[in-house]
């Protein structure tokens, strides 16, 4: 399956990746090859086989509904590029 360049451009946009013309062409080619591989897999007969989304044994793991974390220490916010007191500050969001 060949992948068209517009799709690559669109996916890059969604992922907030800035690709050069050259990179776009390169990834169109590479991603196309990957999809071709999946097409090979799709040719297998999977009738009657449950879709697998994990290969780990399904032993449910839960937390009890208990607050175990103390109020967030200053260190948790320290890496933020911009702050306003305890708020994180980001470029203005336009709705």
């Amino acid at each position: 399956m060949s992948l068209d360049r517009n799709t690559v451009h669109h996916v890059a946009l969604l992922a907030r990746l800035e690709l050069s013309e050259q990179e776009e062409a390169q990834f169109t080619d590479q991603l196309g090859h990957i999809l071709e591989h999946f097409e090979e897999l799709a040719a297998l007969n999977t009738d009657g086989i449950e879709p697998t989304s994990t290969v780990v044994d399904l032993i449910p793991r839960y937390r009890d509904d208990v607050v175990t974390n103390p109020p967030a220490p200053e260190e948790l916010r320290a890496n933020a590029p911009a702050r306003d007191d305890n708020f994180f500050k980001v470029p203005k969001i336009i709705e």
Binding site: A82, D84, F87, F88, K89, V90, P91, K92, I93, E95
Partner: peptide, 11 residues
Amino acid sequence: HDAHGDSSLVD
């Protein structure tokens, strides 16, 4: 959104 001119605050 509207608190501080050119930025937004996140909680």
